[in-house]
Amino acid sequence: MLTYTIKRLFQLIPILFVISVVAYAIIELPPGDFADFYISSLRATGVTVLEDEALRIKEQYGFNAPVVERYWRWLENIIFHGNFGYSFEYQKPVNEIIAEKLPLSIGLTFGALIISWALAIPIGIYSAIHQYSKFDYFFTFIGFLGLATPPFLMALIFAWLFLKFFDYSVLGLYSPEYVTAPWSFDKFIDLCKHLILPVILIGLQGTGTIIRVMRGNLLDELKKPYVITAKAKGLKFRDLLLKYPVRMAINPIISTIGWLLPALIAGEILISIVLGIQTLGPVLLRSVLSQDMWLAASIVMILSLLTIIGSLISDLLLVWLDPRIRFERLSK
């Protein structure tokens, strides 16, 4: 298992390389020299930049070098110095911005993942056992609706409903009276209150699909001969259900992390933008709109990294949980 894990970690290297190339493409693609942009933004803030000074800046950032060398300089900075560059929009290092916003992004995404599983798996099981019941139809419909509603719309609609019917604003992280207040228990409670809706909204993105996958898997598994064997042994229905078919049906759900995580991250970004939650989402939008490409590329790279690590974890989890896959993978 350990050697397998190490092997998988080594396999990540080419993937990380491709990600870095994609991210660097984001930096290079906008028309115009990045240094020009930097210099003009310096000038816009009132700093006088002389022509030879401009040249010096170009030299310093290596903008006169060929693209491969520029790429390598950028990558070198990240790998050896952990330096993602500088944000012209925010006027501070990218590292600082990311360190500030990333934890909440991860927290929201992870919370949403837990919520979507915690909701979807029991509902999926119940729907499968009570196939074609009113409950089943109801959740099939809800699932479809969740699938069809883009996350930002969901956020808009809910924010509007809360405002209209409860006169309660879900925007932002804190209620106005706590924004500048020092940390206290009440402020923490206020923060949690404001995070519940976003977490649920982000989670709903995957919930509908997971319900359908779980329901379908379980329906398939319930027909398998080993379920009949277990029944023939005299097990109670509940014990039988949880020990055999549910266990089997949950395994493929674990492997859905691979696509669920990108979807959740997308949802997190859009919903944070709409609800004004200060995560990486609004920062990303602001950075791409102002062509602050070092920041944008770093965010894209970090989010990609997160999903890749997520699917690696799900893969390892599956190997650990499923003896068939374990047997096949570890014996290779």
């Binding site: 990600i19 984001i26 970004i269 791409v288 990609s304 890749i308």
Partner: peptide, 24 residues
């Protein structure tokens, strides 16, 4: 197959956002 896996595991929205922002 590796490449497909890689493409699927990328978070689409941030990439879409970054690349569309590049359009003149």
């Amino acid at each position: 197959q590796r490449f497909i896996d890689f493409m699927i595991s990328l978070p689409t929205i941030p990439l879409w956002m970054a690349f569309s922002a590049v359009l003149p």
